[in-house]
Computed example of a mutant assay.
Amino acid sequence: MKRTNAILVALFFTFFSCQFFDKKAPDKEQLLKEELGKINWEEVDEFPTVTNCDSVLDKETQKQCFFDYLIQNIQNRIGVDTLQIMYPEMDTISVKVTINPDATLEFRTEKPKEAITYDIKVIDSILQNKLADFPAIEPAIKRGIKVKSQFILPVIIKVEE
Rank of each mutant, 00 (worst) to 15 (best):
K23W: 03
Q72V: 05
L31F: 03
A140E: 00
I145M: 06
E46Y: 15
S17V: 06
I78Q: 03
L153H: 00
T82G: 00
K59I: 11
I120Q: 10
I145L: 06
A140R: 08
D102C: 06
T4D: 12
D91I: 02
P112N: 08
F134T: 07
V95S: 02
R77Q: 14
C18L: 13
N52L: 14
K23Y: 14
I39A: 10
E46P: 00
E161G: 11
E34M: 14
V95R: 07
I71P: 02
E161D: 13
F47R: 08
P88N: 01
I152E: 07
K111D: 12
L127N: 01
T49R: 12
E106V: 11
Q84C: 08
K38G: 03
I93G: 00
N5Y: 15
E35H: 06
V9C: 12
C65N: 10
R108L: 14
K111Y: 08
P139I: 04
F67H: 02
P101N: 13
D45Q: 06
A25C: 00
T82K: 07
I39P: 10
V122S: 02
D124C: 05
D119S: 07
F47A: 08
C65Q: 06
T104H: 12
M90D: 01
K38E: 08
K33E: 11
T4K: 11
W41D: 09
T98V: 15
K121D: 11
L31H: 04
F107Y: 04
I74G: 00
D81H: 03
L83D: 06
S55A: 10
M86I: 13
V159N: 15
D91Q: 09
Q19F: 13
K24Y: 07
K2G: 14
K113A: 15
V56Y: 12
F12R: 00
K28T: 11
A136S: 12
E161C: 02
E138L: 12
E160F: 13
P135D: 06
T104P: 05
T82R: 07
